[in-house]
C-alpha cells in the first residue's frame, strides 16, 4: 500500500471541503436558462395590432417529426380579423407528451408565430391535460396547466421562478 497516493487522493477531497458547493437545490433554487433553451411553445401576436401571427398554414404540423401538432384553419372575418393573414388557426393544439422539443416547428413557421420558450415544468396528472390548445399557448399565458390550476387555488400569480433572458424571437413573452 502506498500511503502517499492515498493521501494525494484524500488531499483532493479535503480541498473541496472548503469550496462553495456547485449543486443547486431544485426545485427551491433554479439554474439560469440560456436564451436558446427550447421549452414550452408560445403563439405570438403582432405587438402593435394585437393580431395573431399564425396564419394557419400547417407548416409546423408538416415539419413536426413527432406528429405532435394539429392545426385547423379558417378564413378570417374581414371586419374583425383574428390574424394578419387571410386565414387564421381555428384550432391549434400541441400534444406535449408527443413533442420532442426539437424546434423544427419554429424553423418551419414562415411568420415566426410559434416559438419555443423557456418554461419546462410541464408535469401533470391526466393525459388530456397535456394537450395545449390555443388559449394555453397564446402569448401572455404563463405557466403550465398544472401551475395555473395551483395558482388559481391559492389566488396567486403564476411564478415561473426561472431567471432567463428571452431571445429576440420571443417577442412579447415575459417570464417575470
Amino acid at each position: 500500500m502506498s500511503v502517499l497516493d492515498i493521501a494525494k487522493g484524500m488531499g483532493v477531497t479535503l480541498g473541496h471541503l472548503f469550496k462553495k458547493p456547485v449543486t443547486v437545490l431544485y426545485p427551491e433554487e433554479k439554474v439560469d436558462i440560456k436564451p436558446r433553451f427550447r421549452g414550452r411553445h408560445h403563439l405570438l401576436k403582432h405587438p402593435d395590432s394585437d393580431l395573431e401571427k399564425c396564419i394557419g398554414c400547417s407548416l409546423c404540423a408538416a415539419a413536426c417529426p413527432a406528429y405532435a401538432i394539429y392545426v385547423e384553419a379558417e378564413e378570417n372575418d374581414p371586419n374583425d380579423p383574428t390574424s394578419a393573414g387571410e386565414r387564421y388557426a381555428k384550432i391549434y393544439e400541441i400534444n406535449m407528451l408527443r413533442c420532442i422539443f426539437c424546434g423544427l416547428c419554429e424553423e418551419a413557421c414562415p411568420t415566426g408565430a410559434i416559438v419555443l420558450g423557456h418554461e419546462f415544468e410541464l408535469a401533470d396528472f391526466r393525459y388530456q391535460d397535456f394537450i395545449y390548445g390555443k388559449d394555453e399557448l397564446m402569448v401572455g399565458v404563463k405557466g403550465s396547466k398544472w401551475q395555473r390550476r395551483e395558482a388559481a387555488k391559492k389566488n396567486k400569480e403564476v411564478n415561473i421562478g426561472v431567471k432567463s433572458v428571452p431571445r429576440k424571437e420571443l417577442e412579447g413573452v415575459n417570464y417575470d
Binding site: 456547485v22 436558446r36 433553451f37 427550447r38 420532442i100 422539443f101 424546434g103 423544427l104
Partner: peptide, 18 residues
C-alpha cells in the same frame, strides 16, 4: 455540467441537441 452549459448555450438543449 460545464460542457452541458456550453451545449445549452449553442444548441438550446442539454441533451438531444439536434
Amino acid at each position: 455540467e460545464d460542457i452541458l452549459d456550453l451545449f445549452e448555450m449553442i444548441a438550446g438543449a442539454r441533451m438531444n441537441y439536434g
